[in-house]
């Protein structure tokens, strides 16, 4: 009863977005504005951006384990075209967990997807993990080899091959210092003749 009462109180406040028992909002709001037309009549116009956000907040509450489609194709700010896996902004579920259910249409993304699954296994994340974690060297060079093989594939467009080349060499360069360090630890340098 008290939950119902506090919910109704919330509804009566400005904004009218009922407050739930845990303090959160029932739903995000969206903006509708009145616009006068040529004849003086009133038109109600829904703001698309806020409505989109509202729709996804409802969808997220109903199906927290479903893929949040807003998180697709977010890699590299679009610099390398629409991509979902190679990079730091992977697809997510509404509840924030990583989601691998999306099968990309772009073959260049598959090595990235496999690479990310291997990183998940090892609990590695971020640029620091990529640049310093020696336990991921095998996964890194599998990615590099696959992307470079795609960059040489005559069946792909020049754009696709360029993307694969950039991704392969990029990750290879980032992983190079840790690889050299793993192959030739700093301790070994002290044994070199001066």
């Amino acid at each position: 009863m008290s939950q119902m009462s506090s919910f109704i109180d919330g509804e009566m406040k400005t904004g009218g977005l009922g407050t739930l028992s845990d303090g959160s909002e029932l739903a995000k709001g969206f903006t509708i504005t009145g616009q006068k037309d040529f004849y003086g009549g009133n038109h109600w116009v829904t703001d698309q951006k806020s409505y989109y956000s509202f729709w996804h907040s409802v969808q997220g509450d109903l199906t927290p384990d479903a893929l949040d489609t807003r998180t697709l194709n977010q890699q590299w700010g679009g610099w390398l075209g629409k991509m979902s896996y190679p990079g730091g902004d992977n697809p997510k579920k509404y509840n924030g967990k990583d989601d691998y259910s999306y099968k990309p249409g772009n073959i260049v993304e598959y090595p990235g997807m496999m690479h990310d699954l291997k990183y998940d296994k090892m609990g590695i994340t971020g640029f620091k993990g990529l640049a310093t974690s020696t336990k991921a060297i095998n996964a890194d060079y599998t990615f590099v080899a696959q992307e470079l093989a795609l960059s040489l594939s005559p069946g792909l467009s020049l754009k696709q091959r360029a993307r694969a080349y950039i991704l392969g060499t990029g990750l290879g360069l980032v992983a190079l210092p840790k690889t050299l360090n793993a192959l030739m630890p700093l301790k070994a340098l002290t044994l070199l003749p001066r």
Binding site: W76, K97, D116, I124, T125, F127
Partner: peptide, 14 residues
């Protein structure tokens, strides 16, 4: 560097 990352969940503690 901020954009390069594994994009995965990583590890809070093991």
């Amino acid at each position: 560097c901020n954009m390069i990352g594994a994009g995965t969940h990583g590890l809070l503690k093991g």
